[in-house]
Design a protein around this nucleic acid. Sequence first.
DNA 1: TGGACATTTCGCTCAGGGTCGAAGGATGTC
DNA 2: GACATCCTTCGACCCTGAGCGAAATGTCCA
Lengths: 235, 235
Amino acid sequence: MEYIARDADIAPVAALIADPTRAAILTALLDGRALAAGELARMAGVSAATASAHLARLLEGGLVDVVRQGRHRYYRLSGHEVAEVLEVLARISARPPVRSLRQSRQARRLEEARTCYDHLAGRAGVSLLDRLVRGGHLAGGDLTESGERLLSRLGVDVAGARGSRRRFAPECLDWTERRAHLGGALGAAITEVLFERGWYRRDSVPRAVTLTDAGQEGLAELFGSKELTSGTPVT
Amino acid sequence: MEYIARDADIAPVAALIADPTRAAILTALLDGRALAAGELARMAGVSAATASAHLARLLEGGLVDVVRQGRHRYYRLSGHEVAEVLEVLARISARPPVRSLRQSRQARRLEEARTCYDHLAGRAGVSLLDRLVRGGHLAGGDLTESGERLLSRLGVDVAGARGSRRRFAPECLDWTERRAHLGGALGAAITEVLFERGWYRRDSVPRAVTLTDAGQEGLAELFGSKELTSGTPVT
DNA sequence: TGGACATTTCGCTCAGGGTCGAAGGATGTC
DNA sequence: GACATCCTTCGACCCTGAGCGAAATGTCCA
């Protein structure tokens, strides 16, 4: 008597991620932006022809979407579920050894503050969640009344996030900090505002972001300066 | 100027999952039990030699552990992180079409109640989380006082779960229900007690479990019979 | 219309790895 | 001690798929 696997067919999707070049492409797209095919080829260190073949397979497999704009084709991850797979995989994968000083600096920036697809991660992300919870703004996986007020004042589209089919405010485990930061629709909505306001800015290192002076002031005012200093050290 | 990927090396791990036979083996181990090499070969539909080669690679890659017992070698997933990867992957993978009536029955049982590595999932898992939250036993990702009382009465080792390095009570998204059930250390501890008490029993279908009469009574008493009838339909 | 650029398609080469049967170890049983 | 059982190793086979250069397609600009 044979068993028949009634589970989802995970092997084909895993095979798409299993090639080093495709993994590099997917990782490059992990910050949520759409990148041109040529740029992805350069980042992955292969010829344009090779990258094109890989992108065609990723498209066929539904892991990426494409937007045609003139003679460019911009590729991006097809959704946050794909980003989640990459994050979870990273958690059980070996981190390659640091070779140069430059790499070590890049690594430190990523640990400090980065985007996890479309929401804030790293020490900054963990600290943000901490402040929301400690301040009584977030409890039970949902915003409290004070949380609603706080985020409305900030300009976050809470109603829109609530209406999304995506989970509202799930914890997302950080693969550098080993602690949770805020993910889901709410995490994305907050992060969007942080960029709009210029409180965080993209770094030259792919997924890294940096806190601006305006952001430092803004966050201090938002949470009260006491909260800031008593929070996780943000140097 | 080349970018250097500072991220974890996800391709090798993905490659381990990318082979259909290895994926079948890993899926067979997804219920947390340890299975003998020969049994895994039979389940995956390959010769003993082939399965042995695959198991050696999975072992080398750290995805499984092995326990030698006499002339048998029992393999199991090396930890819940591996199970999580498989679950997340299943979420974005196509489910193969149902071919036979028998398969359709199996599928229905898995949707009703199954284990997600070491905690309860499916409609039963979602319903359990619902009742805990609605009853005010679980809030803000932690047990309330009433929750502590309730689970202590049931015999759940809450302190032990809290001491674990694993996250305490994270929500785990169900790939059949598209809603959350209770995972983490607490989810595992509760599920352990449910089996010990004989309230749930393993089914003949690999990861499926069934609610026993004792379980039906026990749960009704635990949550109050009103809660049971007003909960998610459990037919 | 012609030329520059971005991307894909084509044709080809080549390495890696999945598969099995048979043989070799290791362990328990009589 | 001889045999059966469980598992791994070995040798051989075959096929998928990653890679590149060159040419074709499509798009923008003058």
